[in-house]
């Protein structure tokens, strides 16, 4: 039931190994892992790097609350949320969300739910660096819409 905010990169096989070993019974029959990457282009402009800022303390509290909501809603055997902060380059890994359950639908849905809530509630901010300078990324209404379906 891990929540990690870190400057360090993560290895998907480590996260998967953790999810295969249940934190709660029964043994899992399904594991879903989502990974978000830094895009190489945004609005047709190449991104040279991205800086992720967050609100230490509140970030962990919000991510743990989202994890707890997911565990309350689906019979999960394990959950992992890893989010990176600091300076990242194109194609770098930003976020991983994993959910394990006895059956696939709960693991798919829980991972999807956690990402939708993370995008709209966890206090992270992206600044994209392009050849034109640095720009704070704007929040998207489609992300709010995605959250409301739950």
């Amino acid at each position: 039931m891990t929540v990690i905010v870190t400057e360090d990169d993560f290895d998907l096989s480590d996260l998967y190994a953790k999810l295969r070993t249940p934190d709660l019974p029964p043994s899992p029959g399904a594991v879903t892992v989502f990974v978000g990457l830094v895009r190489e282009m945004n609005n047709d402009r190449p991104i040279t790097s991205m800086t992720l800022e967050h609100y230490p303390g509140m970030t962990e509290k919000k991510l743990e609350a989202i994890r707890d909501q997911a565990m309350h809603r689906w019979p999960l055997t394990g959950v992992i949320i890893v989010h990176r902060v600091g300076k990242l380059g194109p194609n770098d890994q930003i976020v991983a969300v994993g959910a394990a359950s006895a059956h696939r639908q709960a693991s798919f849905d829980a991972a999807n739910f956690i990402m939708d809530f993370l995008k709209t509630e966890a206090p992270f901010w992206k600044s994209e660096n392009t050849s034109d300078g640095a720009n704070w990324v704007s929040a998207r209404e489609t992300d709010n819409k995605a959250k409301r379906r739950w």
């Binding site: 992720l52 976020v95 993370l118 995008k119 992270f124 901010w125 992206k126």
Partner: peptide, 23 residues
């Protein structure tokens, strides 16, 4: 998270920031 009409107490930590863009 609170609204702008939320009441304040001594010792509160109050944070102001744009809509979040993680993930």
């Amino acid at each position: 998270y609170v609204d702008i009409d939320h009441k304040l107490s001594d010792g509160d930590e109050v944070a102001f920031f744009p809509p979040v863009t993680g993930g």
